[in-house]
């Protein structure tokens, strides 16, 4: 399967996506909902997490990917941008660095970057969003579990279901089997094992046009099924709602589920989840160094609304801490039900 960009698909144009998201009349906008909750304009609480998108290149082409990542995407972060990121991390007391992609491990400077972040602070929580199959994709990646362990990385990996049918439907044929093998490799070096202090968290996102159920209930089910059926263990399960942009938006439209899904997100709006959205405590950095309120805004090319501090090389902590967060209709995805963030439910 090719990326939307390689297909020259209209949804690979972020302006078209935004117009599409804004065009149907669902009776209320996200801005109005935030206003009703006395949260508009949405302001940061503090900046403790830097989420860095190291590139759109990936060995998988998942049906729901909001990045539209895949092997045909060549955009990756340069070492020069990474050096700017390191300066920001060091100077601004960033507590958590969340590396994502694409497959961040495919960036040739990935290991150098991780090692340099670790040199800045032994207590910085470094998260790698590992798609699992990358570990098996090429012999040069087979030692990633040891590398993660050496650098005390928190590994966060997507596994949409505990069976092959639903996982492969979303992430590609054979992905479930490879993911289980990779999880066992991570378990073998201590990841996800009680009292090892090596954290392996899984991400559940629904394989279709429905919302995730209770994080606690799904975690219990995943622990039971993965433990009993495959001998795999992990620490926590994060439930994440699919945001209606990019490939997931394409799926919603093609399957006739777009309006029903948006209505469900809107009717499930939870003001407590809105108060705890991740963009209030983090900044997202694109592969080219531009700054965004979150990874989803990044994919819609909605940059932070601070022209004087819109690139990692122009980072101004005071300006960014006092900015207004850019919101649009897709933000209903983070505020539905128990809420959704890169760390799971928020309310």
């Amino acid at each position: 399967m090719k990326s939307l960009k390689a297909q020259n698909h209209p949804l690979s144009n972020s302006q078209y996506e935004i117009e599409l998201l804004e065009s149907p009349d669902f009776g209320i906008s996200f801005v109005q909902k935030l206003d009703e909750s006395q949260l508009y304009p949405l302001k940061p609480l503090h900046i403790e997490t830097l989420q860095i998108n190291m590139g759109k290149m990936c060995n998988q082409v998942c049906q729901h990917c909001h990045v539209d990542a895949g092997p045909d995407r060549k955009e990756i972060m340069t070492r020069e941008i990474m050096e700017d990121c390191l300066k920001v991390i060091e100077k601004n007391n960033i507590k958590s660095v969340d590396l994502t992609g694409g497959a961040p491990e495919m960036n040739p400077d990935f290991r150098w970057f991780v090692t340099e972040i670790r040199k800045i602070g032994k207590d910085i929580n470094i998260i790698v969003r590992c798609n699992l199959t990358i570990i098996l994709a090429n012999p040069k990646f087979h030692d990633l579990p040891e590398f993660f362990k050496k650098n005390r990385i928190e590994v966060v990996s997507s596994l949409p279901y505990f069976s092959a049918a639903r996982t492969d439907a979303q992430r590609g044929d054979g992905v479930f089997e490879k993911s289980i093998k990779a999880l066992k490799m991570l378990n073998d070096v201590g990841y996800g094992i009680e009292r090892s202090n090596l954290i392996l968290n899984l991400v559940y996102n629904p394989s279709g046009a429905f919302l995730p159920g209770s994080q606690e209930g799904l975690q219990a089910e995943f622990k039971k099924k993965l433990g009993n059926n495959f001998g795999v263990s992990f620490n926590a399960l994060f439930t994440i709602t699919n945001i209606p942009i990019s490939r997931f938006l394409d799926y919603l439209i093609r399957s006739g589920n777009y309006e029903g899904y948006m209505e469900k997100l809107i009717e499930s709006y939870n003001p407590n989840a809105a108060a705890n959205v991740m963009c209030r405590t983090s900044i997202s950095v694109g592969w080219d160094g531009f700054l965004y309120d979150c990874d989803f805004n990044q994919m819609l090319d909605l940059k932070v609304e601070t022209p004087q501090s819109q690139h990692i090389s122009d980072w101004d902590n005071f300006t960014l801490k006092n900015r207004n967060i850019v919101v649009n209709q897709h933000c209903f995805g983070c505020t539905a039900g128990a809420g959704s963030s890169c760390g799971g439910a928020t309310a």
Binding site: Y161, S163, Y204, P206, F210, G213, S214, E221, F222
Partner: peptide, 11 residues
């Protein structure tokens, strides 16, 4: 059907 899917039940 929706509720069962949301709660992680399979087909």
């Amino acid at each position: 059907t929706v509720d069962s899917m949301e709660k992680g039940c399979d087909e």
